[in-house]
Structures are given as C-alpha cells and as structure tokens.
C-alpha cells in the first residue's frame, strides 16, 4: 500500500498540449478512477505514473519519495493493459511468473506464488495453455495475475475491460473490486465507462481535454457535478443541459419562468437529470418527438424550442409523438452552470 501524489504533472507533444498541469492524490489503499472520454489524457497520465513516458513538468511521489526519475521497474508498480499485453510465446504459468523470474526470485518461491495467484483468479486449470488458447476474459485474468503476483505498492489499470463483451465486463469488474477489497492495494484505474467508475471507485477524477474537472466520491460527483461537462458525462441517459437567459432572477424556458437560478441575470445552463423531470399541467412546454419503451421504463425525446431534452419515467404508457407536455421538477433537481465556462453556479 502506498500514497501517490501527482503534483503539477503536465504533458505536451511539441505544440500539442495533452495534459494541463494537474495535481491529484491517491490515498493509501484507495481505488481512484480516472474517467473521461477518448483523447482526454487519462492514459497519458497513467503512463506517466508507470514511467512509460516522461512528464513535461511536475513531480510524482510514492509514499513521499520522488519516483518520476526512476525506471518503470524501479517504481514498484504493476500495470494491466487494455490489450492484455500477454507474452504470446509463454504459457499462462510463465506469463504470471515472469516478473518474479526477472526479479531473480527462486524457482520454488515463484512456483508457489504462481500457484497461489492462479488459485485466487481461478486459473489453475489453464496454467499450461498459451494466450492464443484463452478467451478474452481469461487473458485479462492472466494479466491481472501477472500484476498481482508482484505485490506492488501501486496498481495501474488502463481500460482493462474495454475489449470484453458486456457479460464478461460485469463479471471481471466485480472480480477487480473483490481483489481490491482483498489486497487493499492503492489503485489508479483509467476508464471511459461511467459504470466502472461509479461501481469501482472510492473516488472519481473526471478529465476532459487534459483538464481535471472534478474529484470526489462517485455519488457526490453524480449529485453535485462541478461543471456542465461532468453533468453531461455521468448518468445514462445523460443530464439535459438547457441553455437560456436569466432575467430578474427567473430562467425563461418553453414559455415558462423558472425561479431558483443563483444569478439575477445573464446566460446560464440549466441541468436536469432525465429521471428527475415529471409531466404536469403547467411548466415549460415541450413537444414529444419520440417515445422509446425499454420495458422497465420509457424514454421521451422532447423538443423545447430549438433545444432537446430526454425524460425518463416508468409511467409514460399513454405518451405519443406530437403531444405537447409541460415539464415540472423539484427545485433541488435543478443544476445551474455558467454558460461561458460551464462551472457550477
């Protein structure tokens, strides 16, 4: 276990800035998920921590000790890759035991630790197989085993479940969570999947365009997004973001004046979660453009003037396209953001 401090780390490739100076701390035994869309710099950050690429500026400390000038092998970290990165010419046994062999651990101890790791991951029966003879889930388990066997101070995961189908993804996600509970090793986990972030992370760090938007516990980030990007990125369907003008403290939307805006005037963005909006007899008028019945719930796609919104409810059986509905919501369901920079108001 260890405490990782990322202090002002940035990265640029020539003129292209991939990571803005970023500071973050992963506490002892914590499972921190870095969440963001493709190209946001999350894998770059992970690779900097692993030592695979060099940061343009900033410092990395593990338990207070500078590690940014150490080679990857000297940082005492283990990494699980999206594409498994198993050595194709080695058996499962050799793949798992490889880091110990390189470290010069004795054959007897290596064999014992491989057996123990394989047992933990349910790989006992596959030890003599080559990676080509394994399924995607099995390959990722072997990759996990190769990381686990080293008993590192820090685990790094680079979108480890992205190449798996939905069922396997759920299964392995649960296993990774269980393994973390078992080992309590400090973990930095990169993903673009909000379900993985919400279910696995002790905390989530949201990254976009190389910029850190928010760090917090999953429910805290979900219920109080710091920016409109975070609001739109977390949740399925995503939060509705409706741009409009506040005049004399009231937000004008669909012919209705909504009070509760935290500013007196100016352009703002109103954020509403699809499941927190109801239809009533008064409120902002919207036209139903489409209805998608998913069985346990129904999605109504609405247009409010030139803007679009989605409402998600269980009680919309009678709704049909072309109808006009009125939106109402509790004041605490409204999230207000600055229209210029997206920050929460």
């Amino acid at each position: 276990m260890a405490r990782l401090e990322i202090d002002g780390i940035s990265k640029h490739f020539g003129a292209s800035r991939v990571l803005e100076p970023l500071s973050l701390c992963v506490e002892n035994g914590e499972f921190l998920v870095i969440l963001g869309p493709s190209g946001c710099g999350k894998s770059t950050l992970l690779r900097i921590v692993a030592g695979l690429i060099e940061a343009s500026s900033g410092e990395l400390r593990l338990d207070g000790q500078r590690i940014d000038d150490l080679a990857p092998a000297e940082r005492d970290v283990a990494m699980v890759f999206q594409n498994y990165a198993l050595y194709p010419h080695m058996s499962v046994r050799d793949n798992i035991g490889f880091p110990l062999r390189v470290a010069g651990v004795s054959h007897t101890e290596t064999a014992a630790r491989v057996a123990e790791t394989a047992r933990t991951l349910g790989l006992d029966a596959l030890l003599e197989r080559k990676p080509a003879a394994l399924s995607g889930g099995q390959m990722q388990r072997v990759a996990l085993g190769r990381a686990l066997i080293r008993r590192p101070r820090l685990f790094l995961f680079d979108e480890p479940l992205s190449n798996l189908d939905a069922k396997l993804r759920d299964e392995l996600r649960h296993e990774i969570g269980a393994l973390h509970s078992l080992t309590q090793t400090t973990t930095l986990y990169v993903t673009h999947d909000q379900v993985e972030a919400m279910t696995l992370g002790s905390r989530i760090a949201l990254l976009e365009g190389g910029r850190l938007h928010q760090v917090g516990r999953p429910l805290e980030v979900f219920s109080r997004p710091a920016t409109s990007f975070v609001a739109a990125f977390l949740g399925s369907p995503p939060m509705n973001l409706l741009r409009g003008e506040v005049r004399s403290g009231a937000f004008e939307l669909g012919g209705s004046r909504i009070t509760g805006a935290p500013v007196e005037s100016g352009e703002v963005v109103l954020g509403l979660r699809p499941h927190e909006v109801e239809f009533g007899s008064s409120g902002a008028a919207a036209r139903v453009e489409g209805v998608e019945r998913l069985g346990h719930q129904t999605l109504a796609r609405l247009s409010i003037g030139a803007q679009h919104a989605v409402v998600c409810r269980e009680d919309l059986e009678s709704l049909a396209p072309g109808q006009t509905v009125h939106l109402c919501f509790a004041p605490r369901a409204a999230h207000w953001f600055d229209a210029r920079d997206g920050r929460r108001l």
């Binding site: 692993a50 990857p72 594409n83 390189v102």
Partner: peptide, 27 residues
C-alpha cells in the same frame, strides 16, 4: 510487435537487453 508487450516487459522489470532476449527474439 505490439508496443504494449515491450511496455509490459519494462514494468515487469526488464531492460532492453532482456526484452530483446526474452520477448522480441522468441517472437
């Protein structure tokens, strides 16, 4: 050869000579 293989080997503790011998040559 996928770059991840050499990256994984670096994290596993290999220098270039060991990667060449243990990973690249057998492949």
């Amino acid at each position: 050869l996928p770059a991840e293989l050499t990256e994984a080997a670096r994290i596993d503790g290999c220098g270039h000579l060991r990667i060449w011998w243990s990973i690249a040559l057998p492949l």
